[in-house]
Simulated assay, not measured.
Amino acid sequence: MENLASHATENLILIFLIIVFLQSSIDKVFDWKGNLSFLKDHFADTPLVDLTPFLLGTVLLSEMVAGLLCSAGLFQLAVFNETDIAFYGAIMACISLLMLLFGQRLAKDYEGAKTIAVYFIPAVFLVFLLQ
């Protein structure tokens, strides 16, 4: 319990990222067709339109890995007071968000890109804290 209190900021950001990425990846698994339909329409006027299924799978995989690494990192930090896995989870979260940001910018969805920036700030801060 001492590790939870001594790393409160890291733990809270990890929990935030776990919720964000596991929920998002689970949604993509259970509503693949809906997500794919939305994204094909979203990227209709971009060079990504034909790659949408592959890119959705790539984003799904990166989000799942980020969420699982953050989960394992939270456990490792709480039990062993080590930050290795949490650090890699935070890095993977940043990479996932950068992929999403690239897509939003390419689709000229600037409001969506701003939303991703809001998620990116705590993820990068977690990288900073865990270095």
Rank of each mutant, 00 (worst) to 15 (best):
R105P: 00
L100R: 02
F87A: 09
F80P: 02
A78Y: 04
D109W: 09
E82H: 07
G103I: 03
I95W: 08
F102S: 11
G89W: 00
E82P: 00
A93Q: 00
G103A: 07
S96D: 09
F87P: 03
I85F: 05
I91F: 07
Q104C: 11
D109Q: 10
I91V: 15
F80C: 05
Y110I: 07
G89N: 05
E111K: 12
I91Q: 02
L97R: 00
L101Q: 14
L97F: 06
L77W: 00
A86I: 06
A78W: 01
A90I: 03
A78T: 12
V79W: 06
A107Y: 06
L100I: 12
A78C: 10
L97S: 00
E111R: 14
G103E: 07
C94V: 15
A93N: 01
G89V: 02
S96P: 08
F102H: 07
A86K: 01
G103D: 02
A107R: 03
F80T: 12
L106G: 08
L100W: 05
V79Y: 10
S96M: 05
L98T: 08
F87K: 11
T83K: 14
K108F: 13
A93T: 06
I91C: 08
C94P: 07
C94E: 09
E82L: 07
L101E: 10
F80E: 11
Y88W: 15
K108Y: 13
L106N: 14
M92E: 11
L77I: 01
I85N: 01
D109T: 11
Q104T: 07
I95V: 15
V79L: 11
Y88E: 09
A93K: 00
M92N: 09
I91A: 10
L98Y: 05
Y88A: 06
Q104R: 14
S96L: 06
E111T: 15
L98P: 07
F87E: 04
L100Q: 00
T83Q: 10
E82Q: 13
L98I: 10
A107P: 01
L100P: 02
M92L: 10
M92T: 15
M99D: 08
L98G: 12
Q104W: 03
L106F: 05
Y88H: 13
T83I: 13
I85Y: 01
A78R: 00
A86E: 06
N81P: 01
F87Y: 15
E111A: 15
Q104P: 00
A107N: 04
C94I: 13
L101F: 14
L106R: 13
D109L: 01
N81R: 05
K108H: 15
T83V: 12
Y88G: 09
C94H: 08
K108T: 15
E82I: 04
D84K: 10
A90W: 08
G89R: 01
A78P: 07
A78G: 07
L77Y: 03
